[in-house]
């Protein structure tokens, strides 16, 4: 479904060039739960950002369902649509919009999708989907609260609900438990595992082996390349039809 081949990425910090990725390759199949591990600064977040078209590789390519994300003919608009429709992001620092309520935060991807002129028609459905997602992550009693009124774990669950809003093919999670204590982090991982059990494809970045154990495949990134890939558990056998996690 998703295939990154020979990804190179170099950052320039003042006068120093830092080669973060030096030909990293990765393939992700549908309904897989893949964890990318590596030391701090090994380029795992950079690889995740490139997989989600948040960043562009200097060299190499990413194919999504056989189509190149960074080809010469693929414009920004296509990548924007890819981020909106095909990918859901979960960040370590939640990245919720502080002015909006929990429900509105979850609705935001829907607000990006739907134009002004059709909003009256689609508003009810978007709102219903967002409410169902919040029920699913156990936050139906918090929909009117602002992010600053929630605990870290609750914020991360809101972020997961938001990531699932447009029923993405791929969920990309960047250290989703990195900012949470062990108990809350375990709850989040359990939630991600349940989503994967339901057929959601997940790629998660972490440096914590305990966290990585929840995935069924781990890849290790070192010196800018993928060094090893090992299977940690059985792949879910969810049918293709449930690949996208419905609210």
């Amino acid at each position: 479904m998703l295939r990154a081949t020979g990804i190179h990425k170099t950052y320039r910090l003042d006068r120093v060039e830092v080669k973060v990725l030096r030909g990293a390759s990765l393939a992700v199949e549908e309904a897989e739960f893949v964890v990318i591990m590596g030391a701090s600064g090994s380029g795992k977040s950079t690889l995740l950002h490139i997989l989600g078209a948040l960043d562009t590789p200097d060299r190499g390519g990413v194919e999504f369902k056989g189509r190149e994300l960074f080809g010469a003919a693929t414009g920004n608009a296509a990548r924007e649509r890819y981020r909106n429709r095909e990918v859901g992001f979960v960040f370590q620092f939640y990245h919720l919009l502080p002015e909006l309520s929990v429900l509105e935060n979850v609705m935001i991807p829907g607000l990006v999708t739907h134009p002004f002129w059709s909003w009256r028609r689609s508003r009810g459905r978007v709102r219903q989907d967002a409410t169902q997602l919040l029920e699913r992550v156990g936050l139906s009693h918090r929909i009117a609260h602002r992010p600053n009124e929630l605990s870290g774990g609750e914020r991360q669950r809101v972020a997961i609900a938001r990531a699932l809003m447009n029923r993405p093919t791929l969920l990309l999670a960047d250290e989703p438990t990195g900012n949470l204590d062990e108990t809350i982090g375990a709850e989040i991982l359990k939630l991600l595992a349940e989503l994967n059990q339901a057929g959601q494809t997940i790629v998660m970045v972490t440096h914590d082996p305990k966290v990585a154990s929840h995935a069924h495949r781990q890849v290790r990134l070192a010196d800018g390349v993928v060094r090893a890939s090992e299977t940690a558990g059985p792949r879910p056998s969810a049918p293709r039809a449930t690949r996208r996690v419905a609210p």
Partner: peptide, 19 residues
């Protein structure tokens, strides 16, 4: 969208009003 530009976005008005 790949050729024409993808920019529908009710969020603009929603967030402008909220801000």
């Amino acid at each position: 969208a790949a050729t024409r530009g993808y920019n529908p976005g009710m969020y603009k008005w929603f967030l402008a009003w909220r801000y």
